[in-house]
């Protein structure tokens, strides 16, 4: 077990956004967390990346606790979070946004190499290096947000609804790029999505949550074909 979440509960004041959640992911797996709006997906990722303190429970990455650490420390453990809303820094250029991801790293040669690899993965970014990030389209922004994390050579990459608001062809591009990347590098991915079909297609494992609680988890292929889940949670 590389990522182990055990009995995790997270509150927003009186709202119990995540309740007693337990799941795990193996090294190199791509796991999709599926759930409707308000299911607690964002809250879960914010707790796993140090932005929010959970009420109780534990989360470990390769047996190191992820709880009570600051985001910048988790980044140094190889845990990167692409938060919701295509989060780039609009006032900075594309090049600066990418550079930001590698700022903390000592191995500048490898930062340069990783940046080159990002530009090969998302060639559109290469044509826009000198532009401010707020001139990018939604899809390009999402690529930039992911690219910024890749410059840090993540070992666990967590993405919060990267497909939201994007055209199907762009979603396809981004998901394919992610899938190729993790197969090539052995990166472990926790992908949070409402877009169940696209996510489960590339995922090894699926975790379905509803109103903060675990509904089902298992092999992605089994979940896709489960008729009761299809009707209730997968939206087709």
């Amino acid at each position: 077990m590389t990522l182990q979440v055990t009995n995790l509960s997270i509150n927003h004041d009186a709202i119990e956004a995540v309740q007693d959640l337990t799941f795990s992911i193996n090294e190199g797996e791509l796991a999709a967390v599926i759930g409707a709006n308000g299911a607690g997906k964002t809250t879960l990722l914010r707790a796993l990346s140090g932005l929010k303190n959970p009420k109780s429970g534990s989360a470990t990455w390769r047996d190191n606790s992820m709880i009570g650490k600051r985001p910048e420390d988790l980044v140094r453990m190889g845990i990167l979070h692409v938060s919701d809303g295509k989060t780039v820094i609009p006032e900075l250029t594309v090049k600066e946004n990418l550079a930001l991801g590698g700022l903390w790293r000592k191995d500048k040669t490898d930062v340069a190499k990783a940046t080159t690899e990002v530009l090969e993965l998302f060639p559109k970014l290469g044509q826009r290096l000198a532009q401010r990030a707020d001139t990018l389209s939604g899809g390009e922004r999402q690529m930039l947000a992911i690219g910024r994390c890749l410059v840090a050579r993540p070992e666990l990459l967590m993405l919060d609804e990267p497909s939201l608001g994007l055209a199907p062809i762009i979603i396809e591009q981004i998901f394919t790029a992610l899938n190729d990347l993790r197969k090539r590098t052995g990166l472990t991915v926790l992908l949070v999505e409402q877009n169940a079909m696209s996510a489960l297609e590339i995922a090894d494992k699926g975790i379905i949550i509803n109103l903060g609680k675990l509904v089902a988890q298992g092999a992605a292929r089994d979940l896709i074909n489960d008729p009761t889940l299809q009707a209730a949670y997968l939206g087709y």
Partner: peptide, 24 residues
């Protein structure tokens, strides 16, 4: 400089800066 980039990032979007590893 890198310090300048960190200063600007932390000023504009502290949360994203943190998630990028900046000690805000």
């Amino acid at each position: 400089t890198g310090l300048g980039l960190a200063l600007r990032a932390a000023a504009f979007q502290p949360e994203i800066a943190r998630l990028a590893g900046v000690r805000v």
